[in-house]
Design a protein around this nucleic acid. Structure first.
Lengths: 181, 181
DNA sequence: GTTATTTATTTAACATGTAAGATATTTACA
DNA sequence: TGTAAATATCTTACATGTTAAATAAATAAC
């Protein structure tokens, strides 16, 4: 009584399970890789410059708009920080005179940020060290492998973004009301 | 996400080479990939199960020793948490009856952890969802590419550990915790 | 032209991360 | 044996992340 339909179902289920295990492995390795390097690089950044990776991110985003004022939300989005957390981070950086905040002249809801000279100088220092550390951490990997990895990771990100804008399939346990997205 | 640095000082520094820029790009993609997927998967874990990825990590490590008591430090090491932060995390999980803590019978300095039935049940639920979510997030990536990525990421981790173990005193990481995949 | 919605940010409460130092215990050794 | 060093954990202080709700201003609707 194995109809074609049932065969197809079984087949797709089996392959789905194998693929699921592969996905988990990939996810695990991705996490381990990132966390280990992040811990190493972030630790050095903290020890040598007393700054976190988050602050480095903020500075590097401001650097890309060198001289211009940038809205807080603009920075928060680019650093993947929620609007809720950026406030305290910016506060501390302002207190340390790394950046300046002012009310937007155009939109009175909005505030803007810009690097100070001190922030720019610190950023220049950090950038240099950061590039060296990352390069040292990835020493031993062939350039071709790096290129291959970069290409694959970009592809992963693209695939991820494509699938998460849609409803997640899933056997829909028939229980909870699915939402989100 | 450690954005930053794809275009900055390289042109002004003749000593910076293509390899360094490649390393930075790789680092950037690694961070972006992990953070995006982590945000997606972690967000769902939080919404559906009201648990964080850190808690999920703790439970999955305890699960590997199913039934046995495991030292707090053992868990902290495997989930890459410092001894300082694991305390509060464990406290909250104990308060929620997901795990139990007792003084070690062998070593009076040491404390041990074990999952409760409630914790085990929750873990089973989460594991199932987690596997599906990750698989959905990585849908669209060919199995061969996943395998290639896994292999490359393992290589990166190995290279990273090789270059950063040098300055650490002691023979510690030689027989470090071997992880599965 | 008042009312409702959206947008930009802050506030609040809390979970999780780090480092430094305290405490207790085991271990090594002169 | 007594003392120093290593080990395992906790405490404290604080940086950073999350969500939800509050505030304020711009925008849209009637």
């Amino acid at each position: 009584m194995a109809t074609a339909t049932q065969d197809k179902t079984i087949d797709s289920q089996a392959s789905s399970q194998a693929g699921e295990r592969l996905s988990l492995s990939l996810w695990l390795q991705l996490m381990k890789c990132t966390k280990e390097i992040e811990a190493g690089v972030g630790g050095r950044l903290r020890k040598v410059h007393s700054q976190s990776l988050a602050r480095f991110d903020v500075l590097s985003q401001l650097h890309r708009f060198a001289g211009d004022w940038v809205a807080v939300g603009e920075i928060a989005g680019r650093v993947m920080a929620s609007s809720g957390n950026i406030t305290a981070l910016v506060d501390r950086m302002v207190a340390e005179d790394l950046i300046v905040r002012r009310a937007s002249p155009d939109d009175r809801r909005s505030h803007q940020l810009r690097m100070t000279d001190k922030g720019a100088a610190l950023f220049a220092d950090m950038t240099d060290d950061h590039a060296r550390w990352v390069d040292a951490a990835l020493d031993g990997i062939a350039d071709k492998d790096k290129e291959r990895l970069i290409a694959l990771l970009v592809e992963v990100r693209r695939a991820f973004e494509a699938t998460t804008t849609i409803q997640i399939k899933g056997p829909a346990p028939g229980s909870g009301p699915e939402q989100e997205s």
